[in-house]
């Protein structure tokens, strides 16, 4: 067991914190994208609904999408 562990110490890619291993990256990236759009779209929708405004939901969706993409860039492309 110990030997197994020590042999695999080199096998584990030195990933940055919070970074998923390659095959799962796509799913995590998709999840980030979804989260951003949902979160900021939801905030925009809430602002519209509370203050009887229009347009914040669209702005929120766009901001969310852009922020998610930047986050994906930070996590998986830059590092």
């Amino acid at each position: 067991m110990e030997q197994e562990k020590s042999r695999d110490a080199g096998g584990a890619p030195g990933r940055k914190t919070g970074e998923a291993p390659p095959p799962a990256e796509a799913w995590t990236a998709l999840s980030h994208l979804l989260s951003g759009i949902l979160l900021f779209g939801g905030i925009g929708w809430a602002v519209d609904a509370l203050f009887h405004l229009r347009g914040f939901v669209v702005a929120g969706l766009l901001i969310g999408a852009a922020a998610s993409m930047y986050l994906i860039y930070l996590r998986y492309v830059k590092s």
């Binding site: 919070g18 979804l34 986050l71």
Partner: peptide, 23 residues
């Protein structure tokens, strides 16, 4: 997320929290 200005983090941290911990 590492190496970003605080105002960017205000936007990104909720997304990661939602994505990684809730969704």
């Amino acid at each position: 997320p590492p190496d970003v200005p605080w105002w960017v983090r205000i936007i990104l941290t909720p997304i990661e929290f939602l994505s990684n911990i809730i969704l």
